[in-house]
Nucleic acid binder design. Structure first.
Lengths: 236, 236
DNA sequence: ATTTCAAATCTGATATATCAAGTTTCACAC
DNA sequence: GTGTGAAACTTGATATATCAGATTTGAAAT
């Protein structure tokens, strides 16, 4: 819907401005810590000291505690009552996060295939075409952006708000590494083929195929990521 | 391992007592609020006032804020920066939580079938036998407990710590309603058949069948729950 | 040298105070 | 009556203070 829509009502309709862009201290800490953990800047089992953290960020312990609760619920740290929090992130944790994302993305792809409308199919097709172009021209940055657009569109088509949010929390790809991956022509082509297959399955309403191709895509691309970050050719 | 094990060392070995049973105020608030939300004691979109809540619980706002951050990350409430938190739970949210659990449980069942050892198979068989007995005798309380034991055992067999934790957070079954469900002989029998099928598939190492039967089980039993709680015969 | 145990210390958990953004109220102008 | 806007009020966000459980330390006992 566009900002002004005079046809349906005498009152012009505007999107409510989203307050979520506002940055609070706790969110800043949360993002910074999350990023630090998934990029390996803490050792598994390492203890986190609230006062130290607060000092490092130059804030009080209150927003620190809140950020730690969020990380705890995400499963990236573990809180031992009255003993503090320790880092819970390792290669095996990352592997499981990929599996979780594969399970959830394939479920959401299944539903998207069932629920997508004609307009959604057209939009998906446009995204796929842009991906082909960006793949051919080797535009890694565009590909990274299109990748996100593609998955977001699948989420939207599924009409699943909860699942979409849940999937977001399984994401731990780092921008710089994604760039490295997309600069490899072989990898680019694989990802393109998979995205096209997913888009076609969804557009065709083939829920089972959408589910399968999505799962394979998430697992394969996740393994590529893992093998780079953890310097190991890993099969799950 | 038993508490004392003199064979391996001159030093007696004891299980470290698990500190996780300790109840902190924030955990109490978190559980209480979670339970209240999923059992419908708040309306979707309802605003939550931190000071009111603190007063109701008779505590300060600090643990309240922490509990709200946990609920936020779980997706049960939404925090609008500097405007407070609102309830985000409705029938559609519950439906999606069931789908999420189905996706994750089927993934974990798949892995369990691949990774379970002989000892694990034997234990699973014992649980299945107990379930048959409890189903025949109509012991609802035992069935509820066995149900949990069964799923926990599948989780353990899969060797997936992260996935198991994630699944826990998709659980929103209320004890009293579970009891109602298990008191129905037809429902009991359906659940038993499904559990047996899952156990057999896992024991046979048939990962795909374990995955399918687990997903169907979670979706079907979830729908039963939904239809009771939301008083609607719901197909997803 | 090893064990014991209590004091000192550290640190997470909670309470209270302060600040600032958001909301409401209401007098005033048009 | 409607719209404007400033003051009053509410409330989330952050900071600081206090409390209590956990860990460490070190001297005394064996």
């Amino acid at each position: 819907m566009t900002a002004a829509n005079p046809s349906s009502s005498s009152q012009a309709e505007f999107e409510k401005i989203d307050a979520s862009f506002q940055m609070t201290v706790r969110d800043h800490v949360h993002r910074a810590m999350r990023s630090a953990i998934i990029s390996g800047r803490f050792q598994p089992g390492q203890k986190i000291n609230e006062r130290n953290l607060a000092e490092q960020f130059g804030v009080s312990t209150t927003p620190i505690k809140e950020a730690l609760r969020q990380l705890e619920t995400e499963g990236l740290v573990e809180a031992l009552p009255r003993r503090g929090v320790v880092i819970r992130f390792s290669m095996s944790w990352a592997e499981e996060m990929i599996l979780a994302r594969a399970a959830l993305e394939s479920m959401i792809a299944h539903l998207a295939a069932k629920r997508i409308d004609e307009k959604g199919k057209a939009a998906l097709s446009v995204i796929a075409t842009r991906m082909k172009e960006a793949t051919a021209s080797g535009d890694a940055d565009s590909l990274i952006a299109l990748n996100e657009t593609f998955h977001d569109h699948v989420h939207k088509s599924s009409q699943c708000g909860y699942l979409a949010k849940l999937i977001e929390r399984q994401q731990f790809y780092d921008a710089s590494i994604r760039r490295v991956i997309h600069l490899d022509p072989t990898e680019r082509q694989k990802a393109l083929d998979e995205h096209v297959a997913i888009a076609e399955a969804i557009a065709a309403g083939d829920a089972d195929k959408a589910e399968r191709t999505m799962r394979d895509h998430v697992v394969r691309s996740g393994d590529t990521y893992l093998s780079i970050v953890f310097k190991k050719k890993g099969e799950v």
